[in-house]
Write a protein that binds this DNA or RNA. Structure first.
Lengths: 227, 227
DNA sequence: GTCATAAGTGACGATATAGTCAGAAATGAA
DNA sequence: TTCATTTCTGACTATATCGTCACTTATGAC
């Protein structure tokens, strides 16, 4: 009896109703992504999102408490997924230059087919500068930064302070996003990889140089810190 | 008589009325700068600007046709002044590394005491990614880019295509703004210059490497392109 | 001082957007 | 099928913001 009931539950683990809710939610998030990338988060109105999602306005409030709530979820989703990709593809790189190159490549691959998410990411970064912004945006950004910090920390042998590590991670992120935003503007439709090959290696070289100089170390440690 | 009249005009070249208009206009622009840096351009309402400027709402429309108009003027002012600083302080640098370092320093010096303008600049860059943004924002950005292009063009001896030059300028701007945004986030109140010394040189090194590789040149030209 | 002109003002009507809620539609259990 | 429960809906109200305009104030010519 008990076993039978469990089997029943497993058979159709996700009932239609639950699925419907999920579908609506996804529609809303996806629609918001699109509209945000066209008009910006602030200028977007709720109606535009629900209309694009082909749902009634009330549905929006069934899923989110307001625009800020949706933005928080969206930002968290994007940054968590990006952090996931970073963990997946960069863990194996123990050499700093290769690691940095891998980090850059993950960003490029992640955003190259997801323009909306890139715009969201960039706008989120811009909003971090404001004193009155959407609350809660910073949390997923910090988590994302910490992911990069962990990767870099494990690639360098020397013990390093939290503050310096944060500084390095910010440099990486700042450069990568600046670099990527350039790539977007400069190369319209052309093959991004080719145009950016030398820039990527230049970026890695600059970052390695920076990290080496940022590391607190004595003379005799110099040769075993970074290759 | 004619001479006298001219003298009269010169004596009080700017009549009080004109000055009053200028003062109001400046008040509005300054207030907008402040509010924009707190809430972002989109989220800011006209009343907030006029209230901050301590002026009536109608005055705003005496000076600007709407928020977009004001934003255009603001963006143009900031970028023109930045371009002016670039021209003033970087003209004499004929060596590429020194030139790039000078360009970076101009940005740092320009923004370090003008937080509002930095936020504006960053938001403007973010808005360039949107399909429906404030119209006319791109023009001053292009002019600013062209200023950097001219500087770099005169520092490298080889003839270079407009497209490659634009790409290089975008790289410089992207890196510098990414770099600066990192600096802002990472160093709170600390002396920015010290913390960023090595990063600056790393950035210059990376950019020089990138530019060298981006230059179309034959083997025999290699040694006279960039020192 | 007087007056014509320019600039500033803020209450007001028009418009737009947010958030709600009573009813419609879908779902799933019996 | 029936019906209780969940989700969706979009018309509606309340609120917020815009842009205007009749009026006030400041300016400068005479």
């Amino acid at each position: 009896m008990m076993v039978l009931e469990r089997k029943e539950r497993k058979k159709r683990r996700i009932p239609r109703q639950k699925r419907r809710v999920q579908v609506s939610r996804e529609k809303l998030l996806q629609a918001a992504r699109l509209v945000f990338s066209e008009k910006g988060m602030d200028a977007t109105r709720i109606d535009e999102i629900t209309e694009r999602a082909d749902l009634g306005k009330g549905t929006f409030y069934n899923h989110f408490t307001g625009k800020g709530d949706l933005i928080r979820h969206l930002m968290k989703d994007v940054l968590d997924e990006l952090a996931g990709d970073l963990n997946e593809h960069c863990r194996e790189q123990s050499e700093l230059p290769q690691l940095l190159d891998a980090i850059i490549m993950v960003h490029i691959n992640f955003f190259s087919k997801r323009w909306e998410d890139y715009v969201l990411y960039f706008q989120g970064r811009a909003d971090l500068h404001l004193t009155h912004s959407y609350s809660g945006i910073d949390t997923p950004f910090i988590k994302y930064l910490e992911t990069i910090e962990e990767l870099i920390d494990s690639a360098i042998q020397s013990k390093i302070s939290k503050a310096v590590l944060r500084r390095i991670a910010c440099a990486v992120v700042g450069f990568v996003s600046g670099y990527y935003s350039f790539a977007i503007i400069a190369t319209e439709g052309e093959d991004v990889d080719k145009a950016l090959g030398s820039l990527r290696s230049a970026l890695v070289a600059g970052l390695v140089k920076f990290i080496n100089e940022a590391l607190p170390r004595t003379a005799e440690e110099n040769d075993r810190v970074v290759r």
